[in-house]
């Protein structure tokens, strides 16, 4: 017997004596994250209805294979056609590892899924079901230390998705000076992603947190204080930006499928 049931600890048979609904938060986290994973997987493999001039789904941007329609390929077709067992793979599968890796190694999401999916622990002062624990000291979890590489990759994606939002100030014929609901959707998505990245703990460290003497670096200190303010809300930005990406994709999908019309303000 280990943990709270060890021989030297107070003899209490319950794994927790908490009386509040401690299970609710992990249950909600599982439901929401699992729903997103199912939807994102479906969309990544669907490989259609992701582009409706001038809108492109964030799941498919940048679109890098020869399958991408004209106008969706901001960076050309550097990968040509990649086929597995004779089937051309979805362009989304080439790029999703980067935003996925950024979120998987994110310090906030780690808390969320360690608690909810792995129950390590399910909630504070609630005994976990595992008999051994090595944390993030061994493979594969030691790879969580690579969060910064995904952070930098995420910044590249933020730039690309911001360009997508700017390109959405055109109409379906490619003329500039127009604005639609889709423009707002892509702008909101890009803004939320920037806030999520800017509030990241790695960003906070890189911008100034690693310094020993703030007094020698006044500009970096100022930036660090701003990022620290955002960092307080990192969990909120993590969730809101996740919904933002999913909703932006849903909107583009509906427009591309012809289910709704992208309303133009001007």
């Amino acid at each position: 017997m280990s943990g709270v049931f060890s021989s030297t600890r107070a003899k209490i048979s319950e794994r927790t004596l908490r009386t509040d609904r401690w299970w609710l938060q992990p249950a909600i986290t599982v439901a929401v994250l699992a729903s997103f994973i199912v939807y994102a997987t479906f969309r990544a493999f669907e490989a259609k209805n992701y582009f409706a001039e001038p809108l492109i789904s964030p799941f498919y941007s940048p679109c890098l294979t020869a399958r991408c329609p004209e106008g969706a390929s901001l960076l050309g077709h550097p990968f040509g056609t990649i086929a597995i067992f004779g089937m051309a793979i979805s362009p989304a599968l080439l790029i999703l590892i980067f935003p996925l890796g950024f979120r998987m190694t994110c310090y906030y999401y780690r808390k969320a899924y360690y608690r909810s999916f792995w129950q390590s622990p399910p909630a504070c002062a609630v005994a976990e079901p595992h008999s051994t624990y090595t944390g993030e000291t061994k493979a594969p979890l030691i790879l969580q230390n690579g969060h910064r590489w995904f952070f930098f990759a995420g910044l590249v994606f933020n730039v690309i998705l911001s360009i997508d939002a700017i390109l959405a100030f055109r109409n379906a014929q490619g003329q500039w000076g127009h604005m639609s609901v889709g423009t707002l959707v892509l702008l909101t998505n890009a803004t939320l992603l920037w806030l999520y990245s800017a509030s990241c703990h790695t960003c906070r460290h890189t911008i100034g947190g690693r310094l020993k003497h703030f007094s020698k670096h006044p500009l970096r200190y100022k930036l660090w204080t701003w990022v620290s303010i955002l960092n307080h809300k990192h969990a909120n930005f993590a969730w809101i930006s996740l919904f933002g990406v999913a909703l932006a994709d849903v909107y583009v999908r509906f427009v591309a499928a012809g289910s709704i019309t992208n309303f133009y303000f001007f």
């Binding site: 310090y107 780690r110 808390k111 360690y114 622990p121 944390g135 000291t137 030691i142």
Partner: peptide, 10 residues
């Protein structure tokens, strides 16, 4: 043992 911490914030 810093690597043992899985930052669950309790």
């Amino acid at each position: 043992g810093l690597g043992m911490c899985n930052i669950t914030k309790c």
